[in-house]
Simulated scan of single mutants.
Amino acid sequence: MRLLVIFFLFCSTVALAQQKPAMYYSDSGVIARPIAKDPKIVYFRGLYLMYYSVPGHNNQSWSIGIASSKDLTNWKKIGTITPAADYEKNGLCAPGALVKNNKVHLFYQTYGNGKNDAICHAISDDGIHFSRNATNPIFRPTGEWTCGRAIDAEVVEFRNRYFLYFATRDSSYKIQMQGVAATTSLNTSFNRNEWTQLVDSSILKPSLDWEKQCVEGASCVQIGKTLYVFYAGAYNNEPQQIGVAKSKDGVRWERMSDVPFLPNGKPGSWNESESGHPDIFKAQDGRYYLFFQGNNNKGGSWYLSKVEVKFDGKKWNIVD
């Protein structure tokens, strides 16, 4: 009997180890439980940098953690961006980032202000210490279609200018959906007066059953003349899952499937509660990785992981 118990314990340990992916990163340096959300990856000065959201005590005063890696799997925390300016005193999170002119540009949202949350911009020479844009917040949407809130910034170079994708809610504050703004050219400082809202409506809003009442967390990559967006459907832990859409102009989008590209995990898996908030990233060797957040306890903890993906000329596939 004792040998049988030992055998079952061994099998359970092996099963637990197998269900955890090679990349399984979280941050327990701010609060006791491990939480890291909203990953964004850039390659800068010979290292991969990952920016992510981390809460303060009682899930208030969110900040942005910074981790570095040489292999995109093993990460070490190297810094934190904490609230500093008055407009972000309640918190900041959901980072977007890009490298331009050998500097890291960070696009993030204010937190804890309801309909008044907006997109801000900061710049860094080393990827760790950031100077805020003097015109912050740089963007909030306008029009009867939106409550005026902007979160989950994604800024991407496309068709000789920068596109800013953001999530907002409708006037009832119930439906989360995507909007878009853009600069007039690539020669921009990303200041507030340089952004123009392109349409007075949502460009991508929930319409499929699995998306429920939310489409958020856009992350884009260009292949040829087409822009692809990986997005999160449904609110956290409903479960949130990841879909893909494509566009030729950055404004009109077509879903590539009616089912999630990356669903939540099976019962008992580490991401049973969701696979959410994607970041599509092209590594230095030309391979693509989809980073995302997941958990199996309805948000009691959060981990960041990745899967390798590949485009075959017609559709995206997960590499086994």
Rank of each mutant, 00 (worst) to 15 (best):
A181L: 06
V155Q: 11
T110R: 07
A153Y: 00
R132T: 06
G148C: 05
E194M: 02
Y162V: 01
T146F: 11
R149K: 14
C93W: 12
I128M: 10
F190H: 03
M177D: 07
G148M: 07
P141I: 06
I138M: 02
F166K: 08
L92W: 02
I175M: 12
S172N: 13
L92S: 02
T183V: 00
N136R: 07
Q197A: 04
F163P: 00
R149G: 07
P95A: 09
F158H: 04
I123A: 03
F163I: 06
G148H: 06
N101D: 11
L186A: 11
I123S: 05
A122Q: 01
V156W: 00
N187H: 06
F107A: 06
I138P: 00
F107Q: 01
R132H: 12
R140G: 07
A94L: 02
D170E: 10
G96D: 03
S124N: 05
I138A: 01
T184K: 14
S189V: 02
D152L: 07
S131F: 11
T183C: 02
R149S: 12
Y173F: 14
T188C: 01
F139L: 04
F107V: 02
I175K: 15
R159W: 08
I123E: 04
I123K: 06
N136Y: 05
A134S: 12
E154R: 14
Y162P: 03
G148W: 06
S189G: 15
N160I: 08
A150H: 10
C147F: 12
K103H: 10
R159F: 09
D117E: 14
R132Y: 08
R159K: 15
T146G: 08
Q176P: 08
I175D: 06
A153E: 05
H121S: 05
N133K: 07
M177G: 09
L186P: 07
Q176W: 14
S171A: 15
V104W: 01
G91A: 10
A182R: 08
I123T: 13
H129A: 08
I138H: 03
P137A: 07
E144Q: 15
V155H: 11
R169C: 13
N116Q: 15
R161V: 10
T110K: 10
Y165W: 13
L164R: 04
R161L: 09
Q176C: 11
N160A: 14
C120E: 03
D117F: 11
V99Y: 08
E194R: 03
A94V: 08
F107D: 01
E157F: 06
A94P: 05
A118Y: 04
Q176R: 14
A182G: 09
G114A: 03
G179A: 12
E154Y: 14
H105Q: 06
V99R: 02
S131W: 08
N102Q: 10
F139Q: 00
P95H: 09
C120M: 05
K174W: 13
G179K: 07
G143D: 09
W195T: 02
T146V: 10
R161Y: 12
